[in-house]
Nucleic acid binder design. Structure first.
Lengths: 143, 143
DNA sequence: ATTTGTGCAAATCGTTTGCATCTGA
DNA sequence: TCAGATGCAAACGATTTGCACAAAT
């Protein structure tokens, strides 16, 4: 039984993805999911995604963008990346990998997880285990 | 020519350090410098340093703590560490090294720069140069 | 005397939350 | 129907800033 198709121009990849993640495929989630997942790996801030939605003629409240990003993250569709102590970035690539960060532009780029290796890690302090090893290569304009 | 000694109990390491850095050794800078540099490598947030000053009976405004941390950073006495997207950490160790970060406690620990090695770094995008390679090993309680 | 720093309170920025209203199954 | 989602505006926490006052050279 197929429901009414409200956004006939959008494919249902998003819907399937959302359902699998246990999230109700609401209109705003579908649209945001489309923006996020239809163009390869992306790195967005809430502000950026909100603006992008807006420009594509889809109006969502910023609060909903935040909520959605968090829900997607909790559902494992996104991952947070810490590269800036004042903005939160969300990454559509949830696999193991690292990042280039262009501070001036606020732009993130992936470094494939199998390119880079960190060796010589000391043992973590007693009672602690390693949760993750995050590498950020900060970039500046070449001289 | 030696000036009047106002805080007879404090050594003048701080004063020398400040002068070398081109900063006027004001009372608050001396006290904050003492808190920062007299006990080996430290990692503080403005809030933490402010509170510490307060507890040691020295009252400074939070704004001054922020200003001072920034001035010290600009002068090369401190370095900022990005490990959390909502707090700013300042590190008294300005040399090359990396960090353990205990997210639950908000505590940073140094990893000596010569322990750890990052290899397999891809070349930075055209027109960009590597400014720094930052490694953060996130810790969680061992189960 | 002049320059530089400090403190306070108000302003800002990104993010989060409470709650009335709306929507999807 | 009705649990769950959305939007708005207000609340928030960390940080920054403007400006009158105070301290350092």
């Amino acid at each position: 039984m197929v429901g009414h198709r409200r956004d006939a121009d959008l494919p249902d990849d998003a819907v399937a993805r959302l359902r699998e993640a246990g999230l109700r495929p609401t209109r705003q989630r579908r649209r945001l999911a489309d923006l996020l997942f239809r163009q390869g790996d992306r790195h967005v801030t809430a502000e950026l995604l909100h603006q992008e939605a807006d420009e594509s003629g889809f109006h969502v409240s910023l609060a909903t963008v935040y909520n959605t990003l968090h829900q997607f993250t909790a559902a494992g569709l996104l991952r947070q990346v810490v590269v800036d102590s004042s903005r939160k970035y969300f990454d559509t690539n949830t696999g193991p990998h690292q990042h280039f960060y262009d501070e001036a532009e606020g732009r993130l780029t992936d470094i494939a997880g199998d390119d880079i290796t960190v060796s010589g890690l000391p043992a973590p302090p007693a009672g602690m285990a390693v949760a993750s090893v995050d590498v950020v290569v900060r970039l500046r304009p070449a001289r």
